[in-house]
């Protein structure tokens, strides 16, 4: 293997090369290339149907998203053969656009199972209960979540805003190396958006890379990206700095389509 290339991938949190993904035998991602720099915030923007959610599910390892070609290196390691639980244990986190509700499972019990599953996979012992509760209480306060959330069943009867906050809480407890946020702004009012964004901004640092997937530029006013990538028809067609998001907001996607000859 090329030594230069190896060093290169080590400095990136995630390297995606020529990724092809089928959903129900239909090709959605058609040779996607993307590199995420460690500790940076990347945004992927694209029109409806461009493959944004497919990318996030494929990265998290959803069994219905079939990878037909390409490679995905996370910290230099190929993750495509890993199950969703192993990817999470390695440090990948997906904040869902539509989180599932699990009746009868309390937030506190679920979070403890998740945190300890990840710790065990890393050869660390279970987190002691007082330490866990202290951390949970702190993180909930930061997200302006009432303590009663601990006893509520996971996402059961949660409002849209509560679900998104609960996703960020999970992220805050699991402390991933790569956080993928799939349309996290959908269904949020401005106040909730600010709380959620503050949560992400507090967490991200030199160790956490963030990939924000969004249709609108609005979220990027709160979570400021270092890089913006445009996803159309299953490929990243252009990349740039934060100014690219503003341009997309004012001009729409048609000019991108025209400029990069993406079939409509």
């Amino acid at each position: 293997m090329n030594t230069d290339r190896e060093i290169d991938t080590m400095e990136k949190t995630l390297v995606i090369r020529n990724l092809h993904v089928n959903v129900e035998d239909k090709e959605i991602l058609k040779g996607l290339d993307l590199e995420l720099e460690k500790g940076k915030t990347h945004a992927i923007m694209g029109p409806n149907g461009s493959g944004k959610s497919t990318l996030s599910y494929a990265l998290a390892g959803h069994p219905s998203y079939e990878v037909t070609a390409g490679e995905v290196l996370f910290e230099g390691q190929d993750i495509l053969e890993m199950g969703p639980d192993e990817r999470a244990q390695a440090g990948i986190f997906l904040a869902f656009q539509y989180p599932m509700s699990i009746p009868g499972v309390s937030m506190a019990n679920f979070l403890r199972s998740a945190v300890n599953s990840v710790r065990r996979a890393r050869g660390e012992g279970d987190m002691r209960v007082p330490e866990f509760r202290k951390k949970l209480t702190e993180r909930m306060a930061a997200l302006k979540m009432d303590r009663s959330f601990m006893g509520r069943y996971l996402n059961e009867g949660f409002s849209g805003g509560e679900k998104k906050r609960a996703e960020i809480l999970q992220m805050a407890m699991l402390e991933p190396k790569l956080a993928i946020m799939d349309e996290t702004d959908s269904g949020l009012d401005i106040d909730a958006l600010r709380v959620v964004s503050d949560g992400v901004n507090t967490l991200k640092g030199d160790d956490m890379t963030v990939l924000v997937i969004t249709h609108y530029q609005r979220l990027l006013n709160y979570i400021k990206p270092d890089f913006v990538h445009v996803l159309m028809d299953g490929r990243i067609v252009t990349s740039g700095g934060p100014e690219l998001a503003l341009e997309l907001e004012s001009r729409g996607y048609d000019w991108v389509r025209a400029e990069f000859a993406v079939p409509a």
């Binding site: 069994p63 639980d85 599932m100 699990i102 009868g104």
Partner: peptide, 28 residues
């Protein structure tokens, strides 16, 4: 459902633990 299992597993929980979590929640 596959979606429930995937959601729990995407938090690092093994498939067996995800199943038992859903079952214990069901009888809670």
């Amino acid at each position: 459902g596959e979606e429930q299992l995937f959601y729990l597993m995407s938090r690092g929980v093994s498939e067996a633990d995800a199943y038992s979590m859903i079952v214990t929640g069901f009888i809670e």
